[in-house]
């Protein structure tokens, strides 16, 4: 996955880059499957395909000139500085994380114990997102519809009076 990401970032042709990031997403889906999260794997697969379609729609049929990177030294230096700052913070955060394979299940224990009797859903994930945390899902739907309205407002063709 990391290799695919590097390829996606560094390749010159935009269409190949989009396809490489699609490979990264599919690898992530497989990773979810290995990490025992089948719901996430399915959703990631569908979302990845939609993402690829959107990105290809953006990149295709454009005369793509290769963009040169000006001021190579300054840009790289500042970027590496930011990444170094991030790594310093991440080092302190990594010490606080639970070790791999032993999650903290303080809240989830209650959900697992009472999920079937309270909601009647055998899938604990769906019982959480639809019952215990229904407001989350409401907010998610709100964000989705806001994004759809935004895309329609940006992409519309009619109603531009001041256009030449």
């Amino acid at each position: 996955m990391v290799l695919g990401a590097i390829v996606a970032v560094e390749i010159e042709d935009l269409l190949s880059s989009v396809i490489a990031v699609g490979a990264v997403g599919l690898a992530l889906s497989m990773g979810f499957l290995i990490l025992k999260a089948p719901d996430l794997a399915i959703v990631q697969l569908v979302v990845e395909i939609l993402c690829i379609i959107i990105l290809i729609r953006a990149t295709i049929k454009k005369d793509l000139s290769i963009i040169k990177n000006g001021r190579w030294f300054f840009n790289t230096f500042s970027t590496l500085l930011f990444i170094f700052c991030f790594l310093v913070f991440a080092y302190f955060a990594l010490k606080e994380l639970p070790s791999f394979g032993e999650p903290i299940m303080r809240v989830a224990k209650e959900y697992i114990r009472q999920g079937l009797s309270k909601t009647g859903a055998t899938n604990i994930v769906s019982s959480i997102i639809l019952d215990f945390r229904g407001y989350d899902t409401l907010g998610e739907a709100t964000v989705l519809f806001t994004a759809v309205i935004g895309v329609l407002a940006i992409m519309r063709k009619v109603g531009r009076i001041n256009e030449k």
Binding site: L40, Q44, V47, I104, Y111, E140
Partner: peptide, 14 residues
Amino acid sequence: VDPLPHALVLTNIV
């Protein structure tokens, strides 16, 4: 496995 982060990530993907 802990189902709570799965629910959060499901929201986040969409």
